[in-house]
Nucleic acid binder design. Structure first.
Lengths: 336, 336
DNA sequence: GGCTTTCGTTGTAACAGTTTCATGAACTGT
DNA sequence: ACAGTTCATGAAACTGTTACAACGAAAGCC
């Protein structure tokens, strides 16, 4: 509704200055820029081209750009599925790179004609997402969760399925069950640890903190973990991996060391794509439907758009999708 | 350079009508629209917002959308690597979906403020790419090649490395060497067959057409191929796969059938990502650097932009990147 | 046939945002 | 104190888009 000229009138400025402030032109006083930006946020300014509203949605990386992962690809696929019916276009973005020095994030999005963002983040960049949401820009975070109630989130529920995974291993008579989690903390991964603890406690198993491993969420991490436990006096007989790639690395390395899977070691992994079918033996894994996650993310964003007009505060959306434990060939009974 | 008002003046129309024609508004006579579009193409019309040129580049799927593959993801990663320095944004697009009925492709791109496109295509949609290029819209096709000299192409050279792959198998004393290629024809895959034939002929091996298999480029395709050759009286002892996923499917299925790799069967695959490290044993494969392909694609497009001003015709760019044969654990000498 | 109505097409004008150029204020050097 | 420089801003000119009016041709009605 509010145009640049409306903002200008309200702030006693010229449209030119407002435009410059919004575009991060250095030729504008910092104090004036701040006033313009706060006004733009308060009045829910949306840029238009001519008389048409811009129709871009961003797939934005908040932390390190993990584009290239199957998870992200599937996410985008789901997003575009739903988007094109509404005439939206998807723009790929790295917020840290795209933002100019001393520019607000919402400001950067508006400059690019973006109406809303689907945020991908790593744990260390969570604060960045909170900042964007706090600026009042319509955004949905995928795959993380926040204590902050004001942030819209779409993610999978890994707590329940983590319990299922560990229960599955206990049912198979394993007694020394390890868990391997990404070394950088992340609420979703904390859930997986919580699921592990829950299940162990509920089934009356002792929890040995030395069996909770922090590793790099890459193939390398799994390889190194196998080397570590191979040197242990009484090694675990089953490992639950909270990430896809290290699980695969571990399966390879275990076989290289001469262990047979699942006879000498059972492994439960995590899979967003079809990696579980590409290894030998096929991998028992917790599966999340990343494509569906993308679809739901767009629907959440769309809801946010329609809410934005009516009511401003406390309109956060939270969608939690179930994940499933699929049993394949990498887990078996412990016979020793 | 040319604005909507320039076009209007030249065509004796109002700016409004030109804008409508360019935006596929139905309220414009078909004859008038045709005149506007040809003029827009001739004058190399580029839309601007205010006085600023739009800075969008499309990653466009011409055929079936294969977004979700590691190859595409890596391609995008490479593209964005180079793009952001120039202030460009990447827009994901499905041309068939995005184009309105009776709308030109270049027209659709311009409507969305897109300056140039990187085209991903399947073999059956090659004609679509030729059409876009014929309309004079700056575009680069990735991964295909064309007889048509006027189309800019960035691709890997799979001919040489296909020869290397087959030579490698011949060096290992294999005598019955099969090749498995995607069942839909595609110039890049024809190259791989040509490389196979070249090498076999040069080394004095008989070419048995029954050892040239057409399969689906999915994991399933590889699985079914193994079942087929398991039933053959004198089966091949080595297979060269021209696609990543069936190679992996085949390795799995072969081991399921009880064959040991590489003792009972050698396999050379194809890899755009890191799949070769995720299977057991690690897979000998022809590797292409998809990320680099993306970088080069942007550079080609950038070159096209700068050429466009000076000279109109015959400014097609062709970049062919080398691929490499990496030897791992899935190939070994034939001892029978 | 003459009139009105309707529909399709086009132009005018008002609007969106951006940038060039000019203007004035504040600061700096002598 | 005065000239020169730098910085911030506004007016104006220019993008592209759409609401509204206007025009003309075809169709319907008496």
């Amino acid at each position: 509704m509010a145009s640049i000229r409306d903002l200008a009138k309200q702030l006693n400025l010229s449209p030119a200055t407002v435009s410059r402030a919004l575009n991060n032109n250095p030729l504008v006083a910092p104090e004036v820029r701040r006033r313009v930006l706060t006004a733009a946020n308060k009045l829910q300014y949306v840029p238009t081209i001519g008389r048409r509203e811009t129709m871009n949605i961003a797939f934005a990386y908040a932390g390190d750009r993990s584009i290239g992962s199957p998870f992200d690809a599937a996410l985008m696929e789901g997003l575009t599925d739903r988007m094109e019916s509404g005439g939206f276009d998807l723009v790929i973005l790295d917020v840290k790179r795209a933002v100019h020095p001393r520019e607000t994030f919402s400001h950067m999005f508006r400059r690019k004609g973006i109406r809303g963002a689907v945020l991908r983040t790593t744990s260390e960049a969570k604060g960045l997402c909170e900042q964007i949401a706090a600026e009042g820009f319509p955004c949905v975070v995928v795959g993380e969760h926040f204590d902050n109630e004001g942030i819209s989130v779409v993610r999978s529920d890994s707590l329940t399925s983590s319990r299922d995974a560990v229960n599955h291993l206990i049912d198979l008579k394993h007694e020394k069950i390890a868990i391997a989690v990404n070394q950088v903390d992340d609420s979703d991964h904390l859930d997986r640890i919580a699921g592990y603890r829950d299940s162990m406690a509920q089934r009356g198993m002792a929890i040995d903190d030395r069996l909770i491993f922090r590793i790099a969420a890459k193939r390398e991490g799994g390889i190194q973990l196998i080397r570590r436990i191979a040197a242990m006096p009484d090694r675990p007989t089953a490992i639950f991996f909270a990430d896809p790639l290290p699980a695969i690395g571990a399966m390879m390395e275990a076989q290289k060391v001469g262990w047979s899977i699942p006879r000498d070691l059972s492994i439960v992994g995590f899979d967003d794509a079809e990696l579980r079918f590409m290894v030998h033996p096929t991998m028992t894994a917790i599966c999340q439907d990343a494509r569906e996650l993308g679809r739901v993310a767009f629907e959440a964003l769309d809801l946010l758009f329609s809410q934005k007009g009516r009511e401003l505060q406390n309109s956060a959306v939270r969608r939690i999708l179930p994940t499933q434990l699929e049993c394949h060939g990498s887990t078996g009974p412990w016979l020793a």
